[in-house]
Design a protein around this nucleic acid. Structure first.
Lengths: 148, 148
DNA sequence: AGGATATCGTTGCAGATGCAACGATGTCAA
DNA sequence: TTGACATCGTTGCATCTGCAACGATATCCT
């Protein structure tokens, strides 16, 4: 089969393959929106999360995404400075930060989403529909099970 | 289907999913060998490439892997300092660096490979064999086509 | 009530990263 | 041969990153 004893093929090694593929895809997509809007990957993720979940705290984003708290915090800081996000102290628990999008933040989000969808479609169009479907399902499964 | 207009689900977004999955897998595996041998991901990749291809230059690694030249160069420097790799000037073209493993480098490699294989098997064991097979094929296909 | 403990977000810090520029070397053409 | 141009690996620099520590706030337990 694939893993003969003594032989090892880095290019066929799953963690390596995943890392390369993910880096390429992320980089390609990031190029699109960073050129257009000047935001980084963590910033895009934060915006997308807020847009999706309404007002969220750093903690909530951290719980769902595999990003360090500090990365989120700094991204939020930059977004606030750019006028895309507002930070407020949460009413209930004053340790929490309530992150929400400004009008400009929503406008940017509204323009990025179609780009994201178009890009995703383009990547998947390289696979026949059934393969694409299966692929997505497998990734989803691995993500669910991996989450310890 | 998945992408309704106006709706957007970050957790279902392919580039995001890939990034999260790849980061988790890489991190988990890296934890194993960094604890044991004190090397980083770029260093492991460099070692694996040299072991596989014999004597290689920074350029060759750069061509095959999606790692910046400087990242490779610095990883090679650290490996040399650790006595795992030897840098020599290539005979034919004196601009090239000829990277090769020392005895200690080979010894380390020989001990990492089984860990890598075991880890890969463990990840794939979460899928039924046919799904795993398909998944690997799809990744391979995307990597081939993506390479522009 | 009040002190021990936990949680949240920020920040300091050391190290890693990508990019561009550089020196060294090689190639090509006149 | 010689000068223009290309290629290779390294390095400077600005930035990003993860980790740990911290202050502020909340919760728990007696």
């Amino acid at each position: 089969m694939r893993n003969e004893p003594g032989r090892f093929d880095l290019e066929g090694f799953l963690p390596y393959q995943l890392a390369v593929l993910a880096a390429r895809v992320s980089r390609d997509f990031a190029r699109l929106y960073s050129q257009e809007f000047g935001i980084t990957i963590p910033e895009w993720r934060v915006i997308a999360h807020i847009a999706q979940a309404g007002t969220v705290s750093v903690r909530e984003i951290h719980a769902r995404v595999d990003m360090d708290k500090s990365r989120i915090s700094r991204a939020a800081g930059r977004l606030e400075a750019a006028g895309l996000v507002v930070k407020a102290t949460s009413k209930g628990d004053r340790r929490l930060v309530a992150l929400s999008l400004t009008k400009a933040g929503w406008a940017l989000y509204t323009r990025i989403v179609p780009m994201a969808q178009r890009y995703e479609t383009e990547v998947l169009s390289r696979l026949d529909p059934e393969t694409a479907q299966r692929f997505r399902g497998t990734i989803r499964q691995l993500l669910e099970e991996e989450a310890v």
